[in-house]
Amino acid sequence: MVFTRGISMPTKTKSGSESQVKRTAVRDYGNDPFFVKKAEKSKAFLEKNGFPEALLNRKKALKKA
């Protein structure tokens, strides 16, 4: 079960059908020091080790489409 916090309004699902979802306020945790530190560490790791070629190619293909 997934609920989007906020106000009740219909949203489209991937299939295109509409469903009512409950919405209240889930806060933005983007500035939480734990998440900020983790994101910075991930950047350092990936800048050093790179990404799998297959995933990069998929990203490129999706961008072209």
Binding site: T24, V26, R27, D28, Y29
Partner: peptide, 12 residues
């Protein structure tokens, strides 16, 4: 069951 923010970047 979980809740998500309007940006879908945060889940509780």
């Amino acid at each position: 069951p979980f809740f998500t923010s309007e940006t879908f970047l945060d889940f509780e």
